[in-house]
Design a protein around this nucleic acid. Structure first.
Length: 277
DNA sequence: CTCCGTGCCTGTGAGC
DNA sequence: TGCTCACAGGCACGGA
């Protein structure tokens, strides 16, 4: 499940390996990622274009192509990008192959086919989804004062729903949200307006630090995530509550609980993260 | 505004 | 062993 740290790792590797390369061809093996767009048209518009830059907005990957085009890829649940410097046979989950110059290939693979591709002009960028996201928690502008302000604007939301809302903050998913709240000692079902300043400060700090730690350990390969070369991250070994229902809390030994909150399987320690309103 | 359910997909693993 | 079925959670959408 690629969240901000996983997408950041992929984008860093893409920057080093595909920027400056020309897309010499694009072949589709399934079409769900196009969401109704015409494959032929998509291929025609990317063929011959130079990848000038790759960047991340939240969990979106944006390729800047020559002739002022942006290609947006979202990996959703099980999407992967796999780079190879020489041609390889696609596996059964490969949905698209970008042929690059010097014989390199970039394969898009997706078991569940939820991933999406979009293509638009740089002029339309301000109307695109990635531009409508909340602030990136790793950017310099994301300071405590700002976090307190946006929290203040959503008093009735639960803190878990708030952190997962990409219009408030961009990049957190289910794994890093649960881990950040555990480290902050805050129950995921708490309403934002029930949090005191200390708790808000701890959440701010743990959100920032958990994401940086996730990047440092090359992401969470709990199940599906792989890096640009198919390698695994290491952060799954450092998860303290996610998918550890019934196991003892690493702080106090109490059994970790699992409940559905904000529509997701949610893990927390009932002792270290007490609920009250 | 906010919450909730549904749809999109397929692999995994528990239980019978 | 082999079958069924709930579950995994990203985002969009419609309705309460």
């Amino acid at each position: 499940l690629p969240e901000l740290p996983e997408v950041e790792c992929i984008v860093r590797d893409l920057k080093r390996n595909v920027t400056g390369r020309t897309i010499t061809g694009l072949k589709f093996l399934f079409y769900q990622m196009l969401q109704g767009a015409k494959a032929e048209e998509f291929s025609r518009q990317t063929r011959g274009k130079v990848i000038e830059d790759v960047e991340r907005k939240g969990k979106y990957i944006l390729f800047s192509l020559s002739s002022n085009q942006i290609m947006e890829i979202h990996l959703r649940m099980t999407g992967r990008l796999f780079f190879c410097s020489a041609p390889v046979n696609p596996d059964k989950y490969t949905g698209a192959i970008f042929y690059l110059d010097r014989n390199a290939e970039l394969h898009f693979q997706d078991i569940r086919k939820f991933g999406t591709f979009k293509l638009y002009g740089t002029r339309d960028l301000s109307n695109s989804k990635p531009f409508l996201l909340g602030p990136d928690p790793l950017c310099e502008a994301f300071v405590l004062e700002f976090f307190l302000e946006i929290l203040h604007n959503s008093p009735k939301k639960t803190i878990k729903a708030f952190l997962l809302d990409q219009r408030k903050i961009a990049g957190l998913g289910n794994i890093y949200t649960d881990e950040a709240l555990f480290r902050a000692g805050v129950h995921p079902g708490r309403r934002v307006n029930s949090l005191n300043l200390q708790e808000k400060k701890r959440i701010f700090y743990t959100v920032c630090s958990i994401l940086q730690e996730g990047i440092f350990f090359k992401g969470t390969s709990f199940s599906d995530y792989r890096d640009l070369w198919g390698g695994r991250g290491e952060f799954q070994e450092r998860l303290r509550v996610y998918r550890r229902g019934k196991e003892p809390c690493p702080n106090c030994g109490t059994a970790i609980e699992r409940k559905i909150l904000a529509g997701r399987g949610t893990y927390f320690c009932p002792c270290c993260q007490p609920f009250f309103s």
